[in-house]
């Protein structure tokens, strides 16, 4: 196996193009290294971008936050900018894995891994983040189009995430995030839900809902969003939403939970996030 530590983006892209399938990109390593150890992957070359300068940043402009691909999950969790403009993301970051992992894991790695339970994906779906992908040329993909299936994304062999753009939350927006795991740290989500709502009194102007671990990929709950958006929020409507969410998801049974439990918990968690945002 070879090891290459490119110095800039251009070099990375060149290497990925050159090695294609034979290469694995490694940043924080918290997903790649266990795969290497288990020999689940056997790349011929490791392209290490962990020390690359210039891809670790959290910047803001008037309407958006720009998060560099190599920003660690710890940095997400403690960033004042994110706490202020995208609190959903910092909440989720704070519950990803464990503190030691958070110090290594990067936002791009968490997304590129494409886990259906990816902790940062769920709030980013609600926040309608844009994934900036660098390949032959740069393109922007809305996060809801980024995930394809279990551990599959739209990323091609010669592409990488360069940045995540998060539209700033409207200061009046209400947000809430719940993660249900089997313990309080080092838990893989059994179900997670993030919601962002813009309200005018009890009238919902905008609703965005991200869900994790309830489908082959992290998803938006569009049907629920439609039910809520431009509607007066009534107890009845909320109840209807909680009843409907089961139809929007397609969870599996695994050792952590059955699909029946996941379906029911999606409804419970939806109720809770709605309660939080409507209070």
């Amino acid at each position: 196996m070879e090891y290459i530590r490119p110095q800039n983006l251009k070099e990375i892209l060149h290497l990925m193009k050159q090695w294609k399938k034979k290469a694995t990109l490694i940043a924080g390593g918290t997903n790649v290294i266990p795969d290497l150890r288990a020999r689940a992957i056997r790349p011929e070359v490791l392209i290490d971008i962990s020390q690359l300068k210039g891809l670790s940043y959290i910047k803001e402009d008037k309407k958006k936050i720009h998060i560099g691909a190599l920003t660690t999950v710890s940095e997400l969790a403690s960033s004042k900018i994110i706490q202020k403009w995208a609190p959903l993301l910092s909440e989720a970051a704070n519950q990803l894995g464990n503190p030691l992992v958070r110090n290594r894991a990067t936002i791009a790695g968490n997304l590129a891994d494409g886990s259906p339970a990816a902790d940062t994906a769920v709030p980013l779906l609600a926040l309608e983040a844009i994934i900036v992908i660098q390949g032959g040329k740069e393109k922007q993909v809305p996060i809801h189009q980024f995930f394809v299936g279990p551990n599959q994304t739209v990323l091609k062999r010669d592409e990488m995430i360069k940045e995540v753009i998060v539209p700033k939350c409207n200061p009046n927006a209400k947000t809430a995030y719940f993660k249900l795991g089997l313990r309080n740290s080092m838990a893989v989500s059994v179900v997670s839900i993030a919601v962002l709502m813009e309200m005018e009194k009890t009238f919902c102007k905008k609703a965005r809902i991200g869900c994790g671990a309830v489908a082959p990929k992290p998803i938006r709950a569009y049907r629920i969003e439609e039910m809520l958006e431009n509607h007066e929020l009534t107890e009845r409507l909320l109840r209807a939403c909680c009843e409907t969410i089961g139809k929007e998801i397609s969870p599996i049974s695994d050792i952590r939970a059955s699909k029946e439990y996941r379906t029911e918990m999606a409804s419970v968690l939806l109720k809770r996030v709605m309660k939080r945002v409507t209070q």
């Binding site: 490694i26 290294i33 992992v101 080092m186």
Partner: peptide, 23 residues
Amino acid sequence: GKGDCGACAVLLDGKPVNACLTL
């Protein structure tokens, strides 16, 4: 060996990390 227990924690540039999850 895969970041589930913290027994290998070291400070890497001042931050605690799992040495098993760092090449």
